[in-house]
Every structure is written in C-alpha cells, then in structure tokens.
C-alpha cells in the first residue's frame, strides 16, 4: 500500500520523493472516503441519531488514523512529512459522504 520515501527520521535534511508523498496522500484520502461511507452505513443501520452520529464519525476517523499509523508501523515520518497529514487530512471531505450514507441507511432501516 504505502511506498517508502527515502528518508530517515533522524535526518535533519528533508529528503523525500514528491511522487511517493503524493501517492501516500492519495491513499489517505481513499481510506478516509471509504471509511466515511462504511461508517455512514454502519451508523445508519445502528440507528444512531443526533449528535451521537457526528461523534461516531470522528470516532471512525480516529480509527482510520490509528489504522494508517499501524500500516506505517508507527514510523509516520518515513512515509509522510508530518503527523498532521495522517491525523487531519481529508476529514472534512468525507463528512458529506458520511451524512449521505448515514441518512440513506437510517431511512431504509428505521424510518420506513
């Protein structure tokens, strides 16, 4: 999944491969989108509503972050330029998808 960038966390000179970084960022976005859709469906089926749903979304995103960090074997700096990437990238982008699939599944199961 992830490609290593040729860098050492200890190194003070930033040496990284732009293509690989872009690839990794794209993978983050994919994972986030995927997780937000799946999370939305799960939230809808469970019948979560109100603020709990938003909390659920951030929980899912936190799980994604943990998963990505685990995928990099917790040496985030050899794959990304900073922790912020893995923690914050693409969180708001998935929100719309989450709301849509949440509503969809919730309506399917609970409203009708």
């Amino acid at each position: 999944m992830d490609k290593n960038k040729s860098s050492d966390a200890l190194d003070e000179i930033p040496t990284f491969n732009v293509d690989n970084i872009q690839n990794n960022t794209r993978i983050i976005n994919y994972s986030r989108t995927f997780m937000s859709i799946i999370g939305g469906v799960i939230a809808g089926i469970l019948g979560v509503n109100g603020l709990t749903g938003i909390v659920f979304y951030f929980l899912v995103m936190a799980i994604t972050t943990a998963g990505l960090a685990a995928k990099t074997e917790f040496s985030v700096h050899s794959y990304f330029d900073s922790w912020n990437r893995i923690v914050f990238d693409g969180i708001l982008g998935g929100l719309m998808s989450f709301v849509l699939f949440w509503t969809f599944a919730y309506d399917m199961v609970h409203i009708f």
């Binding site: 794209r26 994919y30 989108t33 937000s36 859709i37 982008g93 998935g94 719309m96 709301v99 849509l100």
Partner: peptide, 17 residues
Amino acid sequence: FLNLFGLRGLFSLILGE
C-alpha cells in the same frame, strides 16, 4: 442535492481519482 454533493466521495472510489 444531497446526493449530488455526497456521492463525490463514492465516485472517487469507484471511478478513480
């Protein structure tokens, strides 16, 4: 409209970046 905005994520998954 909700679909219009929310499906963008799904498209990026099924059709590629």
